[in-house]
């Protein structure tokens, strides 16, 4: 009754990978438990909290709500792929400098959602940023410093 494992080919942060997954694995489980990349976090496993957000083929997705087998042949970008070899992405530096994280568990998801926001809308208003990021839950900060950081990076 245990389903046969499947091999999927997925490009993760530019690296082509072949991964043995269960048909029942979500992309989040494949990333965390099969590949060992734990930057994407499980907060709810049903798409409510955004801690597992990644970018798949240019689209922001909650990786807990994508099956691993659906990621076969796709390109996935995770928080581990945000910084270059030399330096942090401006969103990462600003979050760090502006104390936009406390416990940090929601941070990978916020960074990926903010990255997707700035791709889509390079100069968001505060209201637009708040609506875009409403799918990411943070319980520590009250969101002030996160929103400030995103707007600061957008302004350049």
């Amino acid at each position: 009754m245990i389903p046969e494992p499947k091999v999927i080919s997925t490009t993760i942060n530019g690296d082509e990978k072949q991964v043995l997954v269960s048909e029942r694995d979500s992309l989040l489980e494949a990333l965390r438990d099969r590949i060992g990349m734990t930057g994407a976090k499980e907060g709810c496993n049903n798409g409510n909290c955004g801690a597992c957000a990644v970018i798949m083929d240019g689209r922001l997705v909650n990786s807990c709500c994508v099956m691993a087998v659906e990621a076969d042949g796709s390109e996935v970008m995770t928080v581990e792929g945000l910084a270059s070899r030399e330096e942090l992405h401006p969103l990462q530096s600003e979050f760090l400098q502006n104390a936009a994280l406390q416990c940090g568990i929601c941070t990978p998801g916020f960074l990926m959602s903010s990255y997707a926001l700035l791709q889509e809308k390079p100069n968001p208003t505060e209201e637009e940023a708040r609506f875009w990021l409403a799918g990411n839950l943070c319980r520590c900060t009250g969101y002030d410093k996160i929103i400030e950081s995103v707007l600061t990076v957008a302004k350049g």
Partner: peptide, 16 residues
């Protein structure tokens, strides 16, 4: 904060 870089790059090791 000293633990900040690990937390913004996804390297910080939480229990799970």
């Amino acid at each position: 904060r000293p633990d900040g870089v690990d937390k913004v790059t996804g390297r910080a090791q939480y229990g799970a």
